[in-house]
Design a protein around this nucleic acid. Sequence first.
DNA 1: AACCGAACTGTAAACGTTTACAGTTCGCTC
DNA 2: GAGCGAACTGTAAACGTTTACAGTTCGGTT
Lengths: 382, 382
Amino acid sequence: MTTSAAGPPTVETIAARAGVSIASVSRVLNGHGARPNTVRRVEQAAAELGYVPNGVARSLKGGRTRQLTFAMPDVGNPVYVSMVRQIQATAKPLGYRLLLHSTDAVAEDELDVVRSLADRTSDGLILVPIRVTGEHLDVMAAAARPVVVIGSLPDEAPVDSVRADSVSGTLLAMRHLLASGRRRTAFINGPADTVPGRNRSLGYRTALAEAGLEHDPALTVTTEFDISAGAAAMHRLLDAAPGIDSVFCANDQLALGAVHAAHDRGLRIPEDLAVAGMDNSELARASHPALTSVDLGSAERGRIAAEMLLSRLDGEDHDVRCETVAARLVVRGSTAYDQPDYDHDRDRASDPRAHPDPDPGRRRGAGSGTTATSASASVSAS
Amino acid sequence: MTTSAAGPPTVETIAARAGVSIASVSRVLNGHGARPNTVRRVEQAAAELGYVPNGVARSLKGGRTRQLTFAMPDVGNPVYVSMVRQIQATAKPLGYRLLLHSTDAVAEDELDVVRSLADRTSDGLILVPIRVTGEHLDVMAAAARPVVVIGSLPDEAPVDSVRADSVSGTLLAMRHLLASGRRRTAFINGPADTVPGRNRSLGYRTALAEAGLEHDPALTVTTEFDISAGAAAMHRLLDAAPGIDSVFCANDQLALGAVHAAHDRGLRIPEDLAVAGMDNSELARASHPALTSVDLGSAERGRIAAEMLLSRLDGEDHDVRCETVAARLVVRGSTAYDQPDYDHDRDRASDPRAHPDPDPGRRRGAGSGTTATSASASVSAS
DNA sequence: AACCGAACTGTAAACGTTTACAGTTCGCTC
DNA sequence: GAGCGAACTGTAAACGTTTACAGTTCGGTT
């Protein structure tokens, strides 16, 4: 027994005060049964001392920290923000804390996060890689803790994953544009050397083929994900390929850039030019006219990833799982004449299992006047 | 010496393999000096085994976890997102991880976060309280680890804090509107029973008084922070008080709602109605016309809070500090005829000490055509 | 060749828990 | 009132590190 020095109370302090052994203290505090008299004295001593168990010591003994790590390229990106929200909402009720890691889209940093699981500081990882290399697969396969990837992985990869369906998403948007009579639809894509970039391109060409339209390479521009990049791209398109009546953009920022450019030239939206974006971020709802956008289910992907990880941590030793989240088209004023100027739809409102809204004043009637179309989800286990 | 069973390698495993004691292993690994021969053997053994030190054991021994906690009301709010980014950017180079906690604006949850510092799981806390009660002050004063508050605290509070200057911010926006010849400026405020709510109201009335204008209560509406709430409020104002030529809104969402409402009625912006918002979020840049907005320096508040906390953790035992971050007005097309339709200014671009941009393609020429005015910052130590 | 101090190394304790095991108490039954 | 399980309690070890202390080695001096 140490002298009752300064420092916060420990089981030892309580044991001394209650006149029992530290084992009894631990047992009472964890509800493992003791004589009523013992329980009373320990609980009283603990309460008087304001005892709080040392989580670090507990983690060392128990081998679990009750911490999860979420690593993504950029904290600021609204897509990842909604993932964070859902992961948090899923993990918190089970007593897990969330550790945030921004990789700044540096591949080496991603690898480091996976490797650092070996330091036992976190019980599991949800990773959004910018691009998946062979080294990624090797390192993840050897990870000291369960890893779930949000993104596309090769079929044989031994890692759980959740992916978006950007092919279907693009198809939904393109079909919508073409169904409303547009015949010359441009395409502003993000970097093409990524899986989503290639998938969107595929969706675009597929939709054109479906409609019996020819694919004109001059109608496609590849650029950065950026408002000003979107504006520049739109200007370029309008200069080089006159007669464009609609444009699909790989994210909402690009789409808003396109809207700006169109306005600069005196084009009316949607009358002269229909614009559709992707991600269904808050920007889409806020802009004027409100932006038609493809929702790739980032919130749901976050929730599913969290559930996958938690089930692994529960010790369930099932096969590798890979789930695909359906895309959903949210039609607003930028492509349709009869859509309202703004709507009250929030992306988490689309998720029945979502976190309860902390601030009821912020959500009103859900999506009145907003049309949503879902692509069929394909769920496969390999 | 235990049998070399499964499980990840520990100092013991390495010691056995290198033929030295665990103390030597620890010393070599921490660079505390050893004979070249010992160093070589330990390092080789560690490398061969792929040893990674157990961070939990380390934390238990050292009494520090190298983890910081950031607790705020809502992960999704862009204001907090930019704080997260800066806190992360400041703490990561010093080897600190960031634990995220969303309080969902529940006061009891805020108190729990502070109390849970006693579990030794985090080295310090940055808290954004929704409202500060006496109990908050008591609990923070008794906290087991340093706490920094982002928000306004009573003068005598024994806690470091960083606050925004919403009075000056409101004044900047109002002076700008009045200086451009507007004479009937409405005010859409958020909830009035908070410190920022009262401060904005004060700034509004002060600006009117400065300009020798009478304060007309019919021109002020108090509502929730919400796009649709902003639209509803604007409609109400235009119905009840005709002749309004400008409006200042307590955040960008409200302002965009006002823009929508004005468009619905065929009003031109800025010709018929000038609109200014607050927070200078991405929404302000993205909207059309781009929105004049007051930047309350959320990124900088995050950075300063992180620095304050880190200096406490460095053992510096200075007096309680309270810093106020200056407000800055960013003028864009929604109030000025000659402003560009959009600009490339990003809020972190305004911060010279900010995190380097991970994606150079996203930032172009900084703020060309955008006028920024700073309120003088007052920095005080109590 | 013995000696000395510096430099290194090993043993063991400590951080605060949880828990196996052995020892104790207790309420019953006969 | 002795005997018997069941229920409780205490001792001690374990989780994986770091580090004070004492013991060892080493080179260089005299």
